[in-house]
Simulated assay, not measured.
Amino acid sequence: MVKGTTSMGGFTKKKVHIRCRRCGKNSLHKRHHVCASCGFPEAKRRKYSWIKWYT
């Protein structure tokens, strides 16, 4: 048997994402320094054709 849950259970206590300076959402990755929502610090905002919140 592998002990998956007991080993990985300690990873859930830390916060991975913090508040983004550009969009204000809690989606800025602490270690990678990239926002999952808007793509900060890239110059262009991250957007896809299937996302409906941008115009």
Rank of each mutant, 00 (worst) to 15 (best):
C38H: 02
K44T: 13
R45V: 15
T6R: 15
G24A: 03
I18Q: 09
K13G: 12
G4S: 12
H29S: 05
G9M: 06
T6W: 13
A43T: 11
W50Q: 07
K47W: 09
W50L: 04
G39K: 00
A36Y: 05
S27P: 06
R21S: 14
R19F: 11
H29K: 05
R21H: 07
K30L: 04
C38Q: 02
G10M: 10
K47A: 15
N26W: 02
V2D: 15
R21A: 13
S27R: 10
T12I: 13
C35H: 02
K44L: 13
S37D: 05
R22Y: 03
R45W: 14
S49P: 08
M1G: 15
G39Y: 01
W50M: 04
K15W: 03
K3Q: 11
C38R: 00
T6P: 07
C38G: 02
S37G: 07
C23N: 03
S27K: 05
T55F: 02
R31V: 03
R19L: 12
K47T: 09
R31N: 04
G10C: 03
K25V: 09
A43D: 13
T12K: 10
H29M: 01
A36L: 10
T5Y: 15
W53D: 02
S7C: 07
G10V: 04
K14N: 09
K15V: 01
R45N: 04
I18N: 06
M1L: 08
K13P: 06
V34F: 06
S49I: 03
R46L: 15
K13C: 11
T55M: 07
H32C: 04
R19I: 13
K13D: 14
P41I: 03
C23A: 02
K25D: 02
E42D: 10
K15M: 00
R19C: 15
R22A: 09
W53T: 10
C35N: 02
R46K: 12
H32W: 08
R31Q: 10
S49L: 01
A43H: 08
G24F: 01
I18V: 12
W53S: 01
T5V: 10
K44F: 14
G9S: 11
K13W: 05
K25G: 02
C20T: 01
S49T: 08
R46M: 13
G4Y: 15
G10N: 10
K52N: 11
G24C: 02
R22C: 02
G9T: 05
L28W: 00
K30H: 04
S27L: 08
H29Y: 04
Y54K: 10
V16P: 05
